[in-house]
């Protein structure tokens, strides 16, 4: 399948993706083969179900959110093509100092994480949105009140303008001392 998929990928497509996302051609081919192996219907796009068919992702507490983030760009489109797929993954490329990075800068990475919370796309994390994530991560063993107070404590900690929401700026500030570049990077195999 790997061979076939690399054949299907045309040179200019590779060049375009390479330009957009910064992946090397080798990585692109490799990822394309992964893409096609996920694509059960062989239609060149992935649906949410295709993603969730990955067994580990299905049991990931945030699996659905992660899949959701692949469909960010276009709400009406419930399928993602290879270019979109690659653009999302480009967020996780390691930061290279001397290169101009658009998709994998620290800010882009933070934005990606922020979007994981921000369901309603209003660029604010509300208490309920945070609570929903906490629910997924912490699970059922902790009482609702505890989770609520954790969420409130968290918002209170980050909230600077007193609107009971975490804006993106506040989010970045809260993670000032975190090595986001390293934490949200992955070594893509060649």
């Amino acid at each position: 399948m790997g061979n076939r998929s690399s054949l299907l990928l045309r040179e200019e497509e590779i060049a375009q993706i390479q330009q957009e996302s910064g992946f090397t051609p080798n990585q692109i081919e490799r990822l394309y083969s992964r893409f096609t192996s996920l694509d059960r219907g062989d239609c060149g796009t992935l649906s949410r179900e295709d993603f969730l068919r990955i067994p580990e992702l299905a049991i990931n507490p945030l699996g659905e959110r992660i899949v959701n983030s692949f469909f960010q760009g276009d709400i009406y489109n419930d399928r993602v093509n290879f270019r979109q797929f690659m653009n999302v993954l480009a967020h996780f490329r390691p930061v290279k100092k001397n290169k101009d990075n658009k998709l994998n800068s620290r800010e882009a990475k933070l934005k990606f994480a922020f979007k994981m919370y921000d369901l309603d796309n209003d660029d604010l994390i509300s208490r309920d949105e945070l609570l929903a994530i906490l629910h997924m991560m912490v699970g059922a063993n902790i009482s609702e009140e505890q989770l609520t107070s954790i969420a409130e404590r968290t918002i209170l900690e980050a909230d600077e303008d007193g609107d009971q929401m975490i804006s993106f700026e506040e989010f970045c500030k809260a993670l000032q001392r975190t090595d986001v570049e390293q934490k949200m990077s992955i070594r893509f195999l060649n």
């Binding site: 507490p61 945030l62 992660i66 993954l89 990606f112 919370y117 991560m137 993670l175």
Partner: peptide
Amino acid sequence: NERIHEKLMDHLMTGVEDIL
């Protein structure tokens, strides 16, 4: 904040690794 967001990133990266 750091605790929660870093946890989220962990899960996120696990998910991305799985997708890859």
